[in-house]
Design a protein around this nucleic acid. Structure first.
Length: 594
RNA sequence: GAUCCCAUAGCUCAGCUGGAUAGAGCAACGGUUUUCUAAACCGUAGGCCUUUGGUUCGAAUCCAAAUGGGAUCACCA
């Protein structure tokens, strides 16, 4: 990396010129309005040099030019030292990576293990837009971490038990008339979700009824017959009641079949799937351990808690007075279980920001209990997706359904593609695949290009764009490259040999493209560090945009100089390779034609 | 009441480990096609970077407060 070399040499310069040693020296990309590639801001060194900014910059510049062969020239504007890196440096770099497969990563044996948990669906309803953001984020972060040199284990924990699951079960029992996915033709998860909404409808009626009879709102909500029956059902489930268990298994089975279809459509997968019904009792041994260490305390009524008031938080109960465990207890237990299973360096939880508090407490407790691995826990917190009318609520049916949204996107892609008349040479199968690639790509990019932690507004009335900063634009540029390369191959031009072209100078745009590709590695590392697919998305867009301008202004196949022509083809090929690799990190596939 | 997150063009967002004149896309207006895919390219217009104070040679960026928006603070998950 050129930055590293320059940083070292600058330290050397400061030492030799002013006899001072500086810890870190960093460069930034030169502002496009000035000449140069990298810029050193010298204001920080004035104390050392005891000279004017211009003089300091000039002295450092002279030293670097004399001692670093990669520096072709420099100029000084006020306190800014702009360095021009020689074309030959960039060309050497270009030649070393022009045929590289940017998407392959070879992991060292001892690569750190990172577990990424995402999705975590409930089995009482189908996936909605919020889940889509979660799934895409989790999957993409996993891909990015892989590319950054980690061994990644993708995990899903299915919340398959609990009072909310019993709600749809009870409603189906009461009003389902034996309806099944087969008999109704409704996708399993949607069918179950239908009864979840049904439950809420009846429950609200009951509560209103009780209120009319003089109960307070709170009483009415607690004493609605449906609520009591659900609690009873949960107790039966916990005791292993045969009828309840088999109903549970049947309905969950429908849901899993449905989820599989949605996951496959989204293009996400998991290495491990956990079920809450198997893990909800975990964590009690941690409690015993904490009590023994005196970090957890037992109340008079036998419940167990931890006092976090000294850390600015509250008292957190970890065991009910009847000895049963809670959400937090369970999460403590599963974290420990996972560490014992895979010895992760990091454990990433992809969960919406409404649970920031929960994860803060979780990490704090584990740290207090002295588990050294707990510092590897990270909550990948993302903002909620909101609709113009506010938060989505599954119970009330005000959600953007994941399956509906995806098929809507594919339909839009189909309509647009046909309108542009781009399907003439495709078989029906190829065309269908193309619509899916474009539609889902547009959706994925739309959700991933925004900083994860920001909440996002989705207006279903305004369909997702296909122009500008979008996946179809990026794909379009990839496709243009492929079309051109096919044409070149047909004409018998060999651009993919490792042969080095005798190019001595490059166009400014060509240099920019090489520099852009050069920074791909750094961007991956940064995205991995910040768990941010948005960085990859924006990088890819910038690259595609620059290529688009280059393509527009420069003739490639029509270039008469053969060396230049081949160089340009190689450059295009390289840009295509990077686009393919970086979109892959977002879970986006690129088509070969469109 | 307490804590956490957010605030940049009409809209959606970049930029935030302090640096030069704050960038894209959409929408608006105008232009480019006998030339490698026009889902493209070029141009015009659009900004008290929410406000105030502080730190600094230098602040959209760091600190504090205020305002507005969101979330959380169960022996629910």
């Amino acid at each position: 990396m050129i930055e590293q070399l320059l940083s070292e040499k600058t330290k050397e310069a400061l030492n030799s010129l002013y006899g001072a040693s500086v810890e870190t020296v960093s460069f930034e990309k030169t502002n496009p309005d000035f000449t140069g590639d990298l810029t050193l801001v010298v204001f920080n060194f004035l104390k050392i040099s005891k000279k004017k900014p211009e003089d300091t910059a000039n002295e450092i510049g002279n030293y670097l030019k004399a001692n670093v062969s990669e520096i072709a020239d420099f100029n000084v504007v006020k306190g800014f030292l702009n360095l021009v890196i020689s074309d030959s440096y960039w060309l050497n770099y270009f030649n070393s990576v022009k045929n590289k497969d940017f998407s392959s990563t070879k992991l060292p044996e001892n690569a750190p293990v990172v577990m990424v948990e995402y999705s975590s669906p409930n089995t009482n309803k189908p996936l909605h837009l919020g889940h889509v953001r979660n799934n895409l984020l989790g999957f993409s972060v996993a891909e990015i971490l892989k590319a950054a040199g980690n061994k990644v284990v993708k995990t899903n924990i299915v919340n398959d038990r609990g009072i909310h699951i019993c709600k749809s079960m009870l409603a189906w029992q009461k009003w389902g008339n034996g309806e099944t996915p087969e008999s109704s033709g409704i996708k399993g998860d949607h069918l179950v979700g239908k009864y979840y909404v049904e439950f809420d409808k009846h429950y609200k009626l009951e509560a209103t009824d009780l209120k009319a009879k003089g109960m307070s709102e709170e009483e009415a909500e607690k004493n609605a017959p449906l609520v009591l029956q659900t609690k009873e059902m949960l107790l039966k489930w916990e005791k292993g009641d045969k009828a309840v268990r088999s109903l549970w298994e049947m309905m969950n089975g429908w849901v899993y079949k449905g989820f599989d279809v949605s996951y496959k459509m989204m293009g996400v997968d998991f290495d491990k799937t956990y079920y809450e019904s198997n893990t909800y009792l975990l964590g009690k041994n941690i409690i015993d351990d904490g009590l023994a260490k005196g970090i957890l305390k037992r109340r008079e009524d036998n419940s167990v808690f931890i006092d976090l008031t000294a850390d600015g938080l509250d008292e957190k109960t970890l065991l009910r007075s009847d000895g049963t465990s809670l959400y937090m207890t369970q999460d403590l237990g599963t974290a420990l279980q996972r560490f014992e299973e895979v010895h992760f360096e990091k454990l990433i939880f992809t969960v919406a920001n409404e649970q920031d508090y929960h994860f803060k407490v979780l990490s704090l407790i584990l740290n207090k209990l002295g588990y050294s691995w707990a510092k590897g826990l990270h909550h990948l917190s993302y903002g909620m997706v909101e609709l113009p009318e506010g938060k989505m609520k599954s119970r009330e049916g005000t959600v953007v359904d994941a399956d509906d949204l995806m098929s809507e996107m594919i339909k839009t892609a189909e309509a647009t593609t046909k309108e542009l008349g781009k399907v003439d040479n495709l078989t029906e199968e190829e065309a269908q695949h193309l619509y899916k690639t474009i539609g889902l790509g547009a959706l994925k990019y739309f959700l991933l290009k925004v900083d994860p932690k920001k909440k996002m507004l989705f207006n279903p009335a305004e369909s997702i764009d296909f122009n500008g900063n979008t996946a179809p634009f990026i794909m379009f540029n990839y496709v243009r490259v492929q079309a051109m390369l096919r044409k070149a191959t047909d004409a018998g031009i060999h651009f993919d040999s490792s042969e080095t072209m005798e190019i001595t100078s490059v166009l400014p745009k060509e240099k920019e493209l090489i520099i852009k590709v050069h920074s791909f590695e750094t961007i991956i590392q940064q995205a991995a560090k910040e768990f941010s697919p948005a960085l990859i998305a924006n990088y890819t867009y910038d690259l595609a945009k620059e290529y688009s301008q280059y393509y527009h202004d420069t003739s490639i196949l029509k270039e008469e100089n053969n060396e230049k022509k081949i160089f340009r083809l190689q450059l295009s090929n390289m840009v295509g390779n990077v686009i393919k690799a970086s979109t892959k990190l977002l879970g986006i596939e690129v088509p070969e034609r469109m």
